[in-house]
Amino acid sequence: MFRYPLLSAILLALSLSAATTVRAGVDRIPLRIEPEHIQVGLFYSGQNIVVRADVPAGYNVLLKVNGGTQKLDLKKKGKVLGFLWMNVGEVVYEDVPVLYIIRSSNKLADLAPANVLQQLGIGYDALKAKIVKTPGGEAGMLFGDLIKLKEGEGLFNVVEGGIGPAPMPGGREQIATGFLLPPKAPVGEYLVELYGFKDGAGTLLGSGSITLEQDHLIRFISSMVGHRALLYGCLSVMIAIVAGLLTGVIFGLGKGKAH
């Protein structure tokens, strides 16, 4: 480490800064997440989730929900011949969260300085810093469009100022907030984190998880699609033909003999 004194000094300064802006975790408080386990069945159309917790008084709070990350290979539209909008290339983003939901008691800018939020991965600016390696490049310039795309699917959603803590006896406050786990959220485990902010510093107050899994029928269909693809294709066609002919016969019977 001492071979690079300038680098060492910068790292030390950053560490000290982090120590003062992101506080060491206090005793973790339990989060009451309802429901924690969700089955994706044939009539699944997303799930409303409610998170409750009793937090020490005096904190501004923020709830962050995210899952694993994915690489996204997207098409980019641009002008051709100066007037035609067409797909003109591709943009690749690495480490894009599959889900990114934020609920907070205040505006993000009022909770803590930008560097603190960035360290905690809170807000779209923090996401951009994590995902985009060269901010001046194409991926950086189109980052706003990536957010719009994801927000359109309900997978990214940031609501600032929605949580109102209610006072409780014993110097604590109860918080409750909700969000929709959209139907496009892939199966898997999602991390739910509750942060507290005081005096410009952020603390992880508690965390929990949500598990999203397929039920037997959906798992069976997914397995057919992936592992018995040819059989699945043939069955799909056969059922379509039978349905088509059956309807034809029913309609034909209704009208008697065709001319």
Partner: peptide, 29 residues
């Protein structure tokens, strides 16, 4: 096309097709 798409690209959603075809077979008649 359906068999090739299901086999090669795993892109056929039978539940989607089934819902569409309930309407379309009647519409076609």
């Amino acid at each position: 096309v359906t068999i090739m798409q299901a086999w090669m690209n795993h892109n056929v959603d039978f539940i989607l097709a089934l819902n569409l075809l309930f309407g379309s077979v009647i519409g076609a008649q």
